[in-house]
Design a protein around this nucleic acid. Sequence first.
DNA 1: CCGAATTTGCAAATGACTTGCATTTAACAA
DNA 2: TTGTTAAATGCAAGTCATTTGCAAATTCGG
Lengths: 134, 134
Amino acid sequence: MTTRKTPNMTKIRQATLDVITVAGHPLSANEVLARILLPCNPATIYRSLHYLEGKGYAHSFVLHCAEHGTERYYMATTPENHHHHWFHCEQCHRFIDLGDCSLAPLIQEYQEKLGIQVTRDTLYLTGICATCQN
Amino acid sequence: MTTRKTPNMTKIRQATLDVITVAGHPLSANEVLARILLPCNPATIYRSLHYLEGKGYAHSFVLHCAEHGTERYYMATTPENHHHHWFHCEQCHRFIDLGDCSLAPLIQEYQEKLGIQVTRDTLYLTGICATCQN
DNA sequence: CCGAATTTGCAAATGACTTGCATTTAACAA
DNA sequence: TTGTTAAATGCAAGTCATTTGCAAATTCGG
Ligand SMILES: [Mn+2]
Ligand SMILES: [Mn+2]
Ligand SMILES: [Zn+2]
Ligand SMILES: [Zn+2]
């Protein structure tokens, strides 16, 4: 058997994590690329985000917005590891934090009633934010 | 001014609607293409699904599944026009109907608290269905 | 510093979906 | 029924987020 080296938190990976942590809301790969300080290839950003998600430092969901199309958005995992849901404004494209996921009881109910094992829930709302309504 | 003709429910559009109606659960464009009886070009299926959604005969959501990737899934609008949410099994890729959307109170709460206008909610669960758990 | 394993850059590939354009179909007035 | 014309479709090329193959660069352990 070969000794396997521990994958490293490289500069780029750390910088990627810093970007999504500082942002405080979901960012697409392109947005991370635009904000990262180190010179970096797009492919590396994707790989970096995969790495972070695999390690549990980040999580993501796929959101579709008419103007930006379908993209995966990443956010840093919170210390408590609670997952949040988000509202996305179709006008200014800002995200608003809807707070901790409150679907646990609902999911539990579905699991019991249908015998399913829920691994993941995806919920997001879209519409117009307060500011954009004038 | 020119007189505009009413867009038509063509054979292909009707056949597309039939396919998603009979299925009773969300189908991707490719699945529709595989099930439609008429000879038909993929691009026409996409256009057809857009048409149906625009007319309110169908609605859709974007779902990501590790194996099938990110795709838009369409279902026929129910007579009552209630929208349902779905569970998708990551193993057998079947959908299980979770019933009418029960997020209205939650959404109402968010709208009032945050001043947002929610246009659309996307919620789906993924995991392993009862059958696939053995 | 050395050699092996991991990362990264770069370019090409992928896959869902869209679009331009020529052709076919269908609405409808004559 | 028929001619005129808008709308629908087929086909091929384009778009765009994301992935992947491979060679060069970096890093870890000794
Ligand atoms: Mn957006
Ligand atoms: Mn699937
Ligand atoms: Zn806004
Ligand atoms: Zn299953």
